[in-house]
Design a protein around this nucleic acid. Structure first.
Lengths: 216, 216, 216, 216
DNA sequence: CCCTAAACGAGACGGTACGTCTAGTCTTATG
DNA sequence: CATAAGACTAGACGTACCGTCTCGTTTAGGG
């Protein structure tokens, strides 16, 4: 796929780069070690020292690249997560949403990837830098994908032009995140279909559900 | 109000209780200190040592009552949170849901209570004991409240008898939790009304949206 | 003998002592471990972490008592060194000085104690707290011992009453320290006797060597 | 003056020297930076990295020339120290010794040069390579100078031919080093004169103080 | 009115991980 | 080759909290 590790703190200034360049092997060894430990023991039990030891790398080589445990974990998470969220185009809104949500559920329900996702959302609450990175690399990416589904549906005339896309997307993923995080009920196929049905119905109803003051 | 601190580890064996009884003042001092520090610095920066120091209490007096930082924080959280979730009965489903969700939003959006809630959801991912306590004292309590709203709506004939209440409730609170946790968009009044509208519409449509195989 | 570990940072304020008292076993385990490592590997290779590991003790238990590696080493050094500097009274100045210097030479020449002594002198150059402790526990103690020798010699009429005791003592130990530190020549019995002879002769000549009165 | 930096690790293999020759500017920049930092912050706080940074030089350029921090510091020290130890010939033993010791005291008492000297003596205890270099460039040099003073005194008939020159020299410098290192008493002019007086007296007494077995 | 037993404040205890620092080595690209 | 820059492994530093464990001191019943 594409290069995903956009988070790493490279000097970024695109300059001439003096001195010994950062080793790509080291980079990969760290990410792999982090991913392994994340899957084995979870985010909470992840320590920089263990990552360094497993990757056979000095701690400084980690701190040089990632400012916090959270952002390192995010990178490790992304390398697994993104591969499992395929581009979707079934030619039909209900189909698109259904496939997208199903893929997401399959990736996170009962998996270590899911547990990591949850931990990252949690961590982002206290680490502002991570919060930004999370929104840019996960939330924004997902929303762009979904927005294009909805745009296609609008183009096809399935739903009204003035739909509030943001709310629709939150109503699609919100309930799923909710079950994942609260764990009160399972993320079944049936759940996915019911949610999609309600959202699609709501979307088609469209401005029949007017924002209180023609939207703020 | 009622006694909320159901979490505290009392000897429980209802026995005759020999020796010096636990001091209620100590209990309250700890909870107050925890709440203060939670509001000031957040869950992550909360340490048992700081709580003990602020409450002028030995660490053992905390560990004697609460098995973990998470459960202590939950108790401190509850004492603030529950007071702000009033019982609701407007005589109308949309009105009930709208008021309930509005009250929730008011309590958590941009407040330290909201930040603590998020941290507790996160913490519950790794602390099973906290996860249980969380579901029992927060999730179950809320769902009972909402279930009775929906039952009343069914009795009134507003929505079909075979509605999937669980999914409806997840679609009401899921999007709200989503915005709170991801922080990508604000929790506005407008958002609340749109969500309620779609959920109510979905509920009224009812089995017109059949579960894939007449429900499992 | 007497209690030597005068350096340890006890609260000292002779107060009521609240909380759990510091364990004497821990104290001794640390000192023993430090002494062992000092003998085995020398001061430079001495690590707080290794001491903690060998003594089966947390690092904090060391930092709680000793403010620096140097002062810990000083305590460990003293417990060995002081036992080997016996009180001396031969009834004769030359005899006293000779025995004292011999005992010192025997203790430090070619021994790990000697190497530690040197390292401590070195360390004291940069650690003012250690410098003070060193002067109080080693230098002052030795000088008191020697001063009483000289006082006895004065009382016996061996040397004049107005002798410059300080210079005499520096001329006794200075050359010995010099050979120990510079390592250019060995600390032999012969060396001891020659130094003692010159010092005793100098002492007896006494004010024949006028201090400042005739000056530069 | 003369080239003093005899310590530097030149390729040494007297060969034809291929490739780019080592820059003299780099050499001097490093020594100057080292001397500056030594004076400013002392030996202990001296870092190869800081020297490299201040001299605007790569760390490798330092390691290529000096095998250790100690030897680099020795070179920096020598460039200051040697200039201040002039050749002496007053035509009289007491005068020679007095002038030599006075010059030494003036150079090291309360100066950064003195502090560095002490640190080097200390460092030499653990760094054998430095110990050798120290003895060769400082101790031996000084002893040669003094030996010639004493030889002249013997030639003049001031002191007996069979004097133990080594012990005399240790008795001259030992007490001075002692006060410098232990810091228990100041290095005054008076001290210098008393020491010289005793040493000269001892020297003149000569074999009246016979080594125990006609010397070993 | 003691006696027993638990709770209490204080703080020491063995640990774990932190993030920083320095050492000495190794790669780059550029003279 | 030497050079400047800087990444590399390694490992000690001193700090912060953890959850447990003594201490000596209350504070209650129950005998």
């Amino acid at each position: 796929m594409c290069t995903i590790e956009t988070v790493t703190h490279q000097s970024a200034t695109g300059a001439k780069k003096k001195g010994r360049p950062r080793s790509e092997e080291v980079q990969q060894a760290i990410l792999k070690a982090a991913a392994t430990l994340l899957a084995e023991r979870g985010f909470r039990a992840l320590t920089i020292e263990d990552v360094a030891a497993l990757a056979k790398v000095g701690k400084t080589s980690i701190y040089r690249r990632w400012p916090s445990k959270g952002i390192l974990a995010l990178d490790a998470f992304l390398s697994e997560f993104l591969l499992l969220q395929p581009p979707i185009d079934t030619g039909d809104l209900a189909g698109d949403l259904s496939e997208a949500l199903s893929a997401w559920v399959k990736t996170v329900a009962g998996t270590s990837t899911g547990r990591t996702l949850v931990a990252l959302v949690a961590e982002a609450q206290t680490d502002p830098e991570l919060a930004v990175a999370w929104r840019e690399t996960v939330v924004a990416r997902a929303r762009n994908q979904h927005r294009s589904m909805i745009d296609r549906a609008i183009d096809r005339g399935e739903i009204p032009r003035d739909s509030d896309v943001d709310v629709l997307m939150d109503m699609l993923y919100g309930p799923a995140y909710h079950r994942l995080l609260q764990g009160h009920l399972p993320l079944t196929d049936d759940f996915v279909h019911q949610v999609v049905a309600v959202v699609v119905a709501g979307a088609k109803a469209g401005s029949a559900v007017p924002s209180r003051a023609a939207k703020v």
